[in-house]
Amino acid sequence: MATDTQLDSWEVFMQSRAGANFIHQGSIHASDKKMALQNARDTYSRRGEGTSIWVVPTHEIAASDPDDAGMFFDPSNDKIYRMPTFYTMPEGAKNI
């Protein structure tokens, strides 16, 4: 007898309405893309929660290491001039 399998794992991303971001929902099991989309729909959108779905094989996801978060995100922490509040606007200027 062939070894039992629960098929491959896929990550599910769903868009709740046209124009919105695709947001991670969780994962499902399926053996191919078509089954993955159908299982994702049946699992994560039984009440009209989605208008569009992406499925990605779980093993294809690259993720940053939470332990390295400090170092990894460091380049973005010291550039306060990227924030609009960094700048002093002349007194009286409007709509800026």
Binding site: A2, D4, T5, A30, S31, D32
Partner: peptide
Amino acid sequence: GAWVREAAEAYKSKQ
């Protein structure tokens, strides 16, 4: 239900 999972796997390798 084992045959369903086996068939799905067989279809995958065929594709």
